[in-house]
Structure formats: structure tokens, C-alpha cells
Design a protein around this nucleic acid. Structure first.
Lengths: 120, 120
DNA sequence: AATTATACATAAGTATTTTATGTAATACTA
DNA sequence: TAGTATTACATAAAATACTTATGTATAATT
């Protein structure tokens, strides 16, 4: 139905980790589905995460020790809540800082105006 | 020696096309090596394109009709100059616009502050 | 003479994402 | 109450883009 994102380009590639770390740094614990919903809500449906990308990314971050998960029964269904480990907290802050730095660099590159022509 | 970029992350993935289109929209023609140099210069070495990524990207943009190339002999060496086709010009403007829109969206997501705690 | 810079190119390997598929409970609606 | 949509997890094949490595060759510098 939907692509990964409204933006047809690949800009979001590599930003999934950044988004996950950011949301978890603002919320004590979240589960996967909740993350997709919150991203849609906060970006007014401009960014839509796909499950096929999100769940493996969460698993990887957990295997790297940045996240821990906890399964919680909700009725007969299971929710898997993720939260940042202490290591993950540090990594998240640094990661987000670096992202801003990256964006600043890209904006320098993309905001550059054509240099004045050498003709008078 | 260097990675694709100083930023160890994958944020630049998918932005290579954007960078190429931007530089070519500001310069009537450029060749690959020149693009890598200009990106380094303008980003103070924060972004370094690798040839293994750049050349295939240029080829692809050309095959898509956004660029045309022209080989020029410089001494005994060959330079391959690229420039935007009319279609490429339009695409570049739109692409860069969309990139800014994407960045704005990401910044909304990543600048969100923790909502005030419900405790008094 | 040797190294660095210029200038192109491709190919194997890796990583990330898309797309598709699967399972199952719960909620809504016609 | 039957069908659809939503919630909620997961994985696997295919596509894609990039890194890393390699190759060729000229020109400039040390």
C-alpha cells in the first residue's frame, strides 16, 4: 500500500536507526508498532516505516546492546517493549548530535548559490 | 584510506544523487573527479565521495536521461564532462526542493522535546 | 626515481531496504 | 455475525546502493 516513505528517494536510508534512538530517548519504552504510529503522527504521514525494515533494525540494535526488550502480555497478544540501555542512552545522544552535524553539512552543500559569473 | 564520509553512518546513502544534481545545477559542466574535489572543499572534508560510488551513480543518471556526457581530451588524458539535460534541470530543482522538505520533516522528528511529565 | 595527484572504470562483497508472506488477536461495521 | 480493518509480531527473497579492492594510465611533485 505504502512505500517506506512518501519521499520516493533513498534519503531515509540509514536514518531508521537515528529515528528509533531518538524516539526511545524521549520515551522510557516503546514497542515497534507504536514507533511506526508515532513517526506517522509526528511527520503528518510524510514518513512511514515498514515493518520489514523496522523489526530487523530493532533486533540489530538489541544485539548491539543499545536496546533491551521486554515482552508484555496485553490480553492474549504480546507486545515487545524496547528501551535504551545505559550504553544506548549515550549512543543515542551522540548519534543524534552527529546527525545534526551531518544535516548542517548537507545544507551548506545544497544551499550554495551559484558563484557570480566572471562576465561583467 | 577514507570511508565514504566522515560520518560513519549511512545518512549519505541516497544523497549522492542529490549532491550530483545540485552541483550540476550550479555549474554548466563538471567531471567526476572535479565533483569529489568540490564536495570535499565545500564540506571541509566532512564528506568524501568514493569513486566506486560516484562513477556508477553518474552512469545511472545519464542512462536515466538526466545527464549527458562529453569526453574531452586534456593532454593525453580523457575527462568526461557531465551536464544536466533539460529534463535533468527540472528534475534537479524538484529533487532539491524535496530534499529540503525531507530535512524539515526529519528535524521536526528529531527536535521534538520530551512531553512534560504527567506528574505535578 | 619514487610518490602523489589526476582521471577514468568495474567487480565482489556487504548492508539495508522493499516487497511479500505468515500468524493471530482485537475492534469495528454493515 | 460475517467480513474488514487494525493491532502486533516476525521472517525471507529480491532489489538496491554502497564499500572495498583492483586496474589502467598520465601528469606533477619531491
Amino acid at each position: 500500500m505504502y512505500n517506506y516513505l512518501m519521499y520516493k528517494n533513498d534519503w531515509l536510508k540509514g536514518s531508521l536507526k537515528t529515528i528509533i534512538l531518538k524516539l526511545l530517548s524521549e520515551h522510557p519504552r516503546m514497542y515497534g508498532y507504536e514507533i511506526t504510529r508515532m513517526v506517522e503522527q509526528q511527520t503528518e504521514n510524510n514518513i512511514k516505516l515498514t515493518e520489514g525494515a523496522l523489526y530487523p533494525a530493532l533486533h540489530k540494535l538489541e544485539s548491539q546492546g543499545l536496546l533491551v526488550s521486554q515482552k508484555v502480555n496485553v490480553g492474549k497478544r504480546i507486545r515487545k517493549y524496547y528501551s535504551l540501555t545505559p550504553q544506548g542512552q549515550t549512543a543515542a545522544l551522540q548519534h543524534i548530535e552527529e546527525y545534526f552535524s551531518f544535516v548542517r553539512t548537507m545544507l551548506v552543500l545544497l544551499s550554495n548559490k551559484k558563484p557570480p559569473s566572471s562576465n561583467p
